[in-house]
Amino acid sequence: EHQTACDSYWTSVHPEYWTKRHVWEWLQFCCDQYKLDTNCISFCNFNISGLQLCSMTQEEFVEAAGLCGEYLYFILQNIRTQG
């Protein structure tokens, strides 16, 4: 039997508790949902936990993801305040 992915999907966990996999799933979702250019995102810069992600500043997001960084930063802040 296969496990259902939704059990541990990033949407069901507060961002501060995300694993590295959750972070990448979220990035992929943002790219799909908001039509962000994946080429401007250095995924290696996001090989981090949710706690590390949440402690990043807006400037660090821009450094890590170029033009997309600002969008990603605000998307994350939205999730954190709603969560």
Rank of each mutant, 00 (worst) to 15 (best):
49 S>C: 11
48 I>N: 00
14 H>K: 12
66 G>R: 04
3 Q>H: 15
56 M>K: 04
43 F>G: 08
44 C>V: 12
46 F>P: 02
49 S>E: 07
36 L>T: 03
3 Q>M: 14
3 Q>E: 14
67 L>Q: 14
16 E>P: 03
62 V>K: 13
38 T>F: 08
31 C>A: 06
34 Y>P: 07
58 Q>M: 09
14 H>Y: 08
17 Y>V: 10
38 T>P: 13
13 V>Q: 05
82 Q>L: 06
59 E>M: 07
15 P>L: 02
35 K>T: 08
68 C>H: 15
83 G>N: 10
34 Y>L: 06
3 Q>C: 07
65 A>N: 01
48 I>G: 02
23 V>S: 00
54 C>V: 07
26 W>M: 01
20 K>H: 09
56 M>T: 04
53 L>N: 00
52 Q>H: 05
27 L>P: 02
36 L>I: 07
75 I>Q: 15
77 Q>K: 10
44 C>S: 14
59 E>S: 10
1 E>R: 05
78 N>C: 05
4 T>V: 11
30 C>W: 04
72 L>R: 02
4 T>K: 12
79 I>G: 01
68 C>E: 14
68 C>L: 05
27 L>I: 08
35 K>R: 13
20 K>N: 02
47 N>C: 09
52 Q>A: 07
83 G>L: 08
17 Y>A: 14
77 Q>T: 08
64 A>N: 13
36 L>F: 13
58 Q>Y: 06
82 Q>G: 12
31 C>W: 03
21 R>D: 15
68 C>D: 12
69 G>R: 01
78 N>M: 06
68 C>N: 13
83 G>T: 11
17 Y>H: 10
32 D>Y: 09
63 E>V: 06
48 I>C: 09
18 W>T: 06
49 S>N: 14
19 T>E: 08
51 L>I: 11
28 Q>L: 12
29 F>P: 06
4 T>A: 11
15 P>Y: 02
14 H>G: 09
5 A>V: 13
48 I>P: 04
37 D>W: 00
29 F>D: 14
32 D>A: 14
3 Q>F: 05
36 L>K: 03
52 Q>Y: 01
18 W>R: 01
61 F>M: 08
32 D>T: 10
1 E>S: 10
15 P>T: 02
33 Q>P: 05
76 L>V: 00
5 A>R: 10
62 V>P: 01
25 E>D: 06
58 Q>H: 10
58 Q>T: 05
18 W>D: 05
6 C>R: 09
14 H>P: 14
18 W>I: 11
18 W>P: 01
14 H>W: 02
41 I>H: 05
76 L>N: 01
52 Q>E: 13
37 D>E: 08
78 N>E: 15
82 Q>C: 12
1 E>D: 12
67 L>M: 12
83 G>M: 08
24 W>Q: 15
5 A>C: 12
70 E>M: 07
2 H>L: 09
24 W>G: 10
8 S>Y: 15
70 E>A: 08
51 L>Y: 13
73 Y>V: 02
28 Q>I: 15
40 C>S: 15
64 A>V: 10
26 W>Q: 04
44 C>E: 15
81 T>A: 11
33 Q>W: 03
22 H>F: 03
68 C>I: 07
37 D>H: 00
6 C>Y: 01
48 I>W: 02
49 S>H: 04
42 S>I: 07
44 C>Q: 15
82 Q>H: 13
72 L>E: 01
71 Y>S: 15
63 E>N: 12
45 N>F: 09
58 Q>E: 15
29 F>K: 07
43 F>W: 14
45 N>D: 11
33 Q>G: 02
36 L>C: 00
27 L>R: 01
25 E>Y: 10
81 T>Y: 08
79 I>K: 07
69 G>N: 01
3 Q>T: 11
63 E>P: 03
49 S>P: 06
68 C>S: 14
26 W>L: 05
17 Y>I: 12
72 L>T: 03
74 F>I: 12
21 R>G: 09
1 E>K: 07
61 F>R: 03
74 F>E: 15
24 W>T: 13
21 R>T: 13
70 E>H: 10
34 Y>K: 05
19 T>F: 03
13 V>A: 04
52 Q>P: 02
55 S>L: 07
70 E>D: 10
71 Y>N: 15
77 Q>P: 01
47 N>W: 06
18 W>S: 00
69 G>I: 01
52 Q>S: 07
75 I>L: 14
16 E>G: 02
28 Q>M: 10
42 S>R: 11
80 R>D: 01
62 V>W: 05
55 S>N: 12
40 C>T: 12
34 Y>W: 06
62 V>T: 11
77 Q>C: 08
46 F>A: 03
16 E>C: 08
32 D>F: 04
23 V>K: 06
65 A>F: 15
19 T>N: 11
82 Q>D: 11
64 A>E: 08
19 T>Y: 03
46 F>L: 07
64 A>W: 05
82 Q>V: 07
71 Y>A: 15
30 C>N: 06
46 F>Y: 02
15 P>E: 03
25 E>H: 06
82 Q>W: 06
29 F>W: 13
79 I>Q: 09
40 C>R: 09
31 C>S: 04
32 D>E: 14
59 E>Y: 06
15 P>H: 00
82 Q>E: 13
63 E>C: 05
10 W>C: 04
16 E>W: 07
43 F>Y: 11
61 F>Q: 02
24 W>Y: 15
73 Y>D: 03
81 T>I: 08
34 Y>H: 08
57 T>C: 04
